Simulated scan of single mutants.
Amino acid sequence: MAAMISSTVDSSTFRAEKRRDYDDAVRRTKRLGTALAVISILVLWHFLALYNRPWVPSIADTLRSMQAALSGAQFYSDMLITWRRLLLAFLTATLVGVSIGVVVGFNKKAEAFCAPLIALALAVPDPVYIIFANLAIGTGELAGYIALVLAIVPFVINVVRTSVQARDVQLDEMSKIYHIPAGRHFQHVIVPQLVPSLLTAARFSFALSWKIVILVEALTQPEGIGARIYNYFHMLRMRDAIACAILFCVLMQLAEKVIFLPAEKRLMRWKS
């Protein structure tokens, strides 16, 4: 008996060690891939700067421009304006998209009505929403918000609807057999199955929001990071435009890791 227990413990320890070795190998591969990608981009950038000046600034000139932007107050002012627009559009689009996606996923009649509209909305290019919002409302900030929400909501609806329809229907039948109340069924059966798709929808909505908000600001707004990049480009100050774009992209990537990675670990903890 003692030998069997010892053998089981040794087997569990061996599997744990193998799992740690595998995770370490995966992390090393990811770090190596990231390093190679960054080096490749820098090498390509260097050669493009050598043969396409002044349209492609050198890495050193861009770094100096980034330092100058970070040392000035105007960059932070524009960043706050863009962040306000981004967060408002992201929260609105996510809440509206998740709500509609859940309803469409559960209701066959709602799906029959919304499916063609969702397909049409997914096919419309983002600049079209911006143009129609400006024509209908004007070039004010409200038009930008509406264009952002309209461009993002269809993608969120589609992700959530697909997840709802892919849920385990047998769990719904089991809840009916045991007469589990609808509220407890939704909380303990439906929500855990939707958490991965909700996280995916939120991350996708955030990623799409900060890309489209730059486009909206460049086309319609006098302030913000998008307007700043467009003005630099209009004045042929390419190194300032690229420096501002890089700073914004880096900040958005950091924000995504700070916001979504901890939330994902916390919400998906039940799986482990």
Rank of each mutant, 00 (worst) to 15 (best):
I212D: 00
Y230C: 11
A25D: 13
V159R: 03
A115T: 15
A207T: 15
M79F: 14
R31P: 01
S58P: 11
T13E: 05
I5T: 10
H234L: 11
L50G: 02
T13L: 13
I41T: 15
D10Q: 15
M1I: 06
K109Y: 11
A263E: 08
Q253E: 13
R85Q: 14
A201W: 02
T139I: 13
Y232M: 00
L198D: 02
T200C: 02
S77I: 05
W55F: 12
P154M: 04
G101M: 02
F260K: 06
I41E: 07
A16K: 06
I146M: 13
S99M: 04
G33N: 09
W83Y: 10
L215C: 08
E111Y: 05
M238A: 13
G101S: 05
V102D: 04
I39K: 08
A151S: 14
A207S: 14
I118G: 10
I81A: 03
L48R: 06
A60C: 00
V102H: 00
F113R: 05
L42K: 04
V169F: 14
L142Q: 10
I5G: 00
A151C: 09
T62P: 00
P54G: 10
I212N: 03
A37G: 07
D21K: 10
P127K: 08
L135I: 10
A115I: 14
Y76H: 13
I190N: 01
G105E: 05
R161V: 10
V102R: 02
P192A: 04
A123I: 01
A255N: 04
T162I: 11
A89Q: 08
I225W: 03
L80Q: 11
A35Y: 10
L122M: 09
V156A: 05
M235D: 12
A166P: 12
S58C: 04
F248L: 06
M1P: 03
T29K: 12
T82D: 03
L122V: 03
S272N: 13
I214E: 01
D126A: 14
E17F: 14
L198A: 01
K176G: 11
R53G: 10
A115M: 14
T29D: 15
A241P: 00
P196S: 05
H188V: 13
L171N: 08
P127L: 04
K30I: 14
R28D: 11
L88S: 06
I100P: 12
K265A: 08
N107Y: 07
M235T: 12
A151F: 02
L86H: 03
L86I: 01
W270E: 01
L36M: 12
W210I: 00
R19P: 07
R84T: 15
V258C: 09
L32P: 01
E111L: 03
L91P: 01
S7L: 10
F14S: 07
L120G: 06
R239W: 06
L150W: 07
T29G: 15
L48V: 01
A69F: 12
D23H: 15
V149G: 07
G105W: 04
T29S: 15
A3C: 01
